[in-house]
Amino acid sequence: MLIQTEVGRARVVADQLAELPGVTSAEYVTGPYDVVVRIGADTLDELTASVVPTVQQVTGITRTLTCPIANGAHP
């Protein structure tokens, strides 16, 4: 998931996201997005109904883009 944040909030948002269920990693980065988050769930339904909305509710997030892994593999 690619995330844009309010100015100056990338590190705080990444730290908060790292603590959420379903989040396996959260890193703040430079470029057009501010945070890159790897998320996962047992099913696509669980991912879209639970994990994604929980991530989107974190204060300081202005926009998200969910990019499912095409081959379905995850470490």
Rank of each mutant, 00 (worst) to 15 (best):
T59N: 07
G8Y: 04
V7P: 01
P53G: 09
I61F: 08
Q56M: 10
T24M: 03
G31A: 08
T64S: 11
T24V: 08
V29I: 08
S25V: 01
A41W: 12
D42H: 10
N71M: 06
L2M: 11
L2I: 14
Q57I: 12
S25E: 07
C67F: 10
R63L: 14
A18D: 02
V52I: 15
A73R: 12
Y28D: 09
P68R: 03
T30M: 08
G72W: 14
P21E: 13
V23G: 10
R63E: 13
A70M: 05
T62V: 13
P53F: 11
Q57N: 15
S50D: 09
A49S: 11
T5I: 00
T54V: 02
V52P: 09
C67R: 04
P68F: 14
A49R: 10
G72C: 09
I39A: 15
R11E: 09
T64K: 07
G8D: 05
E46L: 04
P75W: 13
L65Q: 15
E19V: 04
Q56R: 09
T48F: 07
A10C: 11
Y33G: 08
L65N: 15
T30V: 07
Y33L: 10
Y28N: 14
P21V: 01
V13Q: 04
A26E: 02
V23S: 08
A26L: 04
G22R: 02
Q4F: 04
T5R: 00
Y33Q: 10
V29H: 06
Y28S: 11
D42V: 15
L20T: 06
G60R: 06
T59W: 08
T43I: 03
G22Q: 03
D15C: 00
Y33P: 03
R11W: 07
R63F: 07
A18M: 00
Q4I: 14
L65P: 00
V35Q: 02
A49W: 09
E19Q: 07
P21L: 02
A70C: 08
I61Y: 10
P32N: 12
Y33A: 13
L44V: 10
S50W: 09
C67T: 10
G8I: 02
V58Y: 06
R11C: 04
L47P: 01
Y28W: 11
L2K: 15
Y28V: 00
Q57H: 15
V29Q: 03
T48V: 00
R63D: 11
I39W: 04
A49M: 11
G40M: 01
D45G: 10
L47D: 10
V29M: 09
A41N: 15
R38F: 11
M1G: 13
L17T: 02
D42T: 11
L20G: 04
T48C: 06
T62Y: 15
T24W: 02
S25C: 00
D15R: 06
E6M: 02
Q56E: 11
E46N: 07
V7G: 05
T30R: 07
Q4W: 12
E46F: 04
I39S: 10
T62C: 14
T24F: 05
N71K: 06
V23W: 12
G72L: 14
P75C: 12
G31K: 05
N71W: 05
I3A: 00
S50E: 07
V29P: 05
V58G: 02
L2G: 09
L17P: 01
R38P: 01
A26N: 05
P75A: 15
G22Y: 07
A73M: 07
T62L: 12
E19F: 04
Y33W: 14
G72P: 05
A26C: 06
H74C: 15
T48K: 03
